[in-house]
Design a protein around this nucleic acid. Structure first.
Length: 452
DNA sequence: TGAAATGTTGGGGCG
DNA sequence: ACGCCCCAACATTTC
């Protein structure tokens, strides 16, 4: 009788799960286990909400297979040690995680117990992409090309209709609920079935025009698969096969790989500027402005609409992530780590590596980053990517009656236009908290100081 | 996965 | 008819 533990991490699915498939094939009985360990990674609010739903869903997937998932809260090593002894497990099966803390933990576990480790959550293994001149890739395109040259994506691993699991006592699946999470319930269903539905729908209706549509927040042109991918309810391998050949989308899948690769090779980047020149940058501490940014009350409609979409739905369109990030950093001079924290807490797809890469990219301190002088003009970005103001009006109903011409710059609208639209600036909708043109000049000055 | 400043060109108005 | 000027429209450079 061979017994083993299947240790789930961010692979909350039974199908398309190489670790689980191998365990079921090679063992007589398994104990499927998920451990929530805050010492390894403390989740944000939105992630906790999603995790709870995803674990419920995983439980029911196991039930459908005639098995049962064990869920525990606490210290991973302690719990694993206890369970290995209790059930007499010969080995552990799991999919690799490459975030620094969990990677180190998995490494230690591997030394302690016989383990079978698989790559179930990523298209590439960051250790296997050849580094050039002894250094990891720090530019996306060559990295991407190297991946495509190396890559061989496995096909679906087999999983029997019925599996035998060992039942062990579980902790409660419930996280404390915040009132805010009601908003998430309205917008998301955190199950694999729903993820598959999104995938199917995306392929049939948006994939063809993805390259163009993905930049327009008013168009539902993106896949919205990110939370399902993050929690491993969908496997990147199955997405790869499903969208095969669509370069614009595949490229985005590889930005996720690049994020993982980047943080794996530069774990310090989690807290510190990857480019140390930026350590000398003069940031402002301005809690009042930061708060206005989080609330979507900066007076720049495209920024505010993005921030409110995030708060209302737990998700933000990619184009807007770039715009609001540029605004926080280059118009308000607030350190990127503040933005990173807010995203971590509120995004349902909050992913450590992607989040860090995204923010360092915007700040200019990351690899292959936007040059410091690349500063988004929120009015122009609005006009370009939400030309009719449809998106802005969806999240800023107070601007509903403002004509297209002024929708991205209400402060410039003539008095009578504002009156007719029923808007008293500074009351119904804020005046701009900073003047972009001046902020831009100031940003260039400050960036110039650290250039050299 | 920028935007502003500066440079160049060419058509049309006009003396 | 010609040259001059103006200024879009586009291209290039700079931050």
């Amino acid at each position: 009788m061979k017994k083993a533990i299947v240790w789930h991490n961010l692979d909350l699915r039974t199908e398309w799960n190489p670790a689980l498939s191998a365990a079921v094939q090679e063992c007589d009985e398994i104990l499927p286990l998920y451990i929530y360990d805050e010492k390894i990674e403390k989740l944000g609010s939105a992630s906790k909400w999603w995790l709870e739903g995803a674990l419920k869903d995983l439980s029911s997937e196991y039930q459908a297979l005639g098995g049962k998932l064990c869920f525990r809260v606490g210290d991973t090593k302690k719990i694993l040690g206890e369970l290995v002894g209790k059930i007499g497990a010969e080995s552990l099966y799991f999919n690799a995680q490459f975030e620094p803390a969990i990677f180190q933990l998995q490494k230690q576990i591997t030394k302690k117990y016989p383990c079978e480790v698989f790559n179930g959550n990523h298209l590439i293994d960051p250790r296997e992409i050849e580094v050039s001149k002894g250094k990891p890739y720090s530019v996306f395109t060559p990295f991407y090309k190297a991946c495509l040259k190396e890559i061989s994506v496995p096909t679906k691993p087999p999983l029997p209709r019925k599996i035998h699991t060992i039942v062990s006592k579980s902790d409660s699946l419930k996280f404390p609920h915040e009132r805010w999470m009601k908003k998430l319930e309205k917008n998301w269903t955190p199950t694999r079935r729903e993820g598959l539905k999104h995938l199917k729908q995306f392929i049939s209706s948006s994939l063809k025009k993805y390259k163009y549509d993905r930049d327009y927040p008013a168009i539902k042109g993106t896949s919205k698969l990110s939370p399902y991918l993050h929690f491993g309810q969908l496997c990147p391998h199955e997405i790869w096969h499903a969208v095969k050949g669509k370069e614009a989308y595949t490229r985005q899948l590889f930005w996720r790989e690049f994020g993982t690769y980047f943080l794996f090779h530069f774990p310090d980047a989690q807290k510190k500027n990857w480019n140390h020149k930026f350590d000398k940058f003069l940031w402002d501490k301005n809690p009042r402005l930061y708060e206005k940014w989080t609330e979507g009350r900066t007076g720049y409609p495209i920024v505010d609409a993005g921030m409110r979409q995030l708060y209302e739905t737990g998700w933000m369109h990619n184009r807007l992530r770039m715009i609001v990030a540029s605004f926080l950093i280059k118009d308000l001079f607030i350190h990127w780590t503040y933005g990173e924290k807010w995203f971590w807490d509120t995004l349902v797809d909050a992913d450590m590596a992607n989040n860090i890469l995204g923010w360092q990219w915007t700040a200019g301190s990351g690899p292959d980053a936007a040059p410091y002088f690349r500063i988004f003009n929120p009015t122009l970005q609005g006009k370009r990517f939400d030309p009719h103001g449809e998106f802005v009006k969806e999240y800023l109903p107070e601007l509903r009656d403002l004509p297209e011409k002024w929708i991205h710059q209400p402060w410039k609208a003539p008095k009578e236009v504002l009156e007719k639209a029923g808007i008293h600036l500074g009351k119904d909708y804020p005046l701009p908290v900073v003047e972009h043109e001046k902020a831009r000049e100031e940003a260039l000055k400050r960036f110039n100081k650290i250039k050299r």
